[in-house]
């Protein structure tokens, strides 16, 4: 059982929050995470979040879908059991396009979404993981991990001076 302590700065407005993030980072404090009820535009830059590489995952999963679909149709109708259907060649590529397209989309979408779930740790659980329940309603919460020797009152002043309406402490037992 390990427990971690966090200082939670609660904010009321996204612009105040963005400014506070910048100032906090400029002051040399490491921000553990920021929680908000909706995606805030511009937060990636101030938090230093890198652009997600999920589109690349989607592309390669899609490519797998394309190759699999083409291989499947060419193998089945071209080699395993060739048949003349409507006078078309055995490997009638134009009529393989729809299935190839659909499987490309299917694999790209599922591959990307499953990757997103895995890397973000999103899975069905019974526990309530949020640090402050208001962050899924109308508040923005900046969490700073408390380490040995962190000056709490200094952090408190820093957050409040940049517009936090509340500063709370929260312990999470893992």
């Amino acid at each position: 059982m390990t427990s971690k302590k966090y200082i939670l700065g609660v904010f009321n407005d996204e612009d105040v929050l963005l400014n506070a993030i910048e100032q906090t980072r400029a002051a040399g404090t490491k921000i553990y995470d920021v929680f908000s009820p909706y995606p805030i535009h511009g937060i990636d830059d101030v938090l230093g979040i890198q652009r997600s590489r999920l589109p690349i995952v989607a592309f390669f999963c899609g490519l797998c879908g394309t190759s699999f679909a083409l291989w499947m149709q060419i193998y089945m109708l071209g080699f395993d059991w060739p048949m003349i259907i409507g006078g078309k060649p055995h490997i009638a590529l134009p009529s393989f396009i729809p299935v190839t397209f659909e499987l490309t989309v299917l694999c790209a979408a599922f591959g990307m979404v499953i990757t997103f779930f895995i890397i973000s740790g999103l899975r069905p659980t019974l526990k309530v993981p949020v640090l402050d329940v208001r962050s899924t309603d109308d508040k923005y919460v900046m969490a700073i991990e408390l380490k040995e020797g962190t000056d709490i009152s200094k952090l408190n002043d820093l957050l409040r001076s940049h517009g936090a309406i509340e500063v709370n402490e929260k312990e999470v037992v893992k």
Partner: peptide, 8 residues
């Protein structure tokens, strides 16, 4: 699904 609303 364990959603927290984290910026990331």
């Amino acid at each position: 699904f364990n959603w927290t609303g984290s910026a990331k």
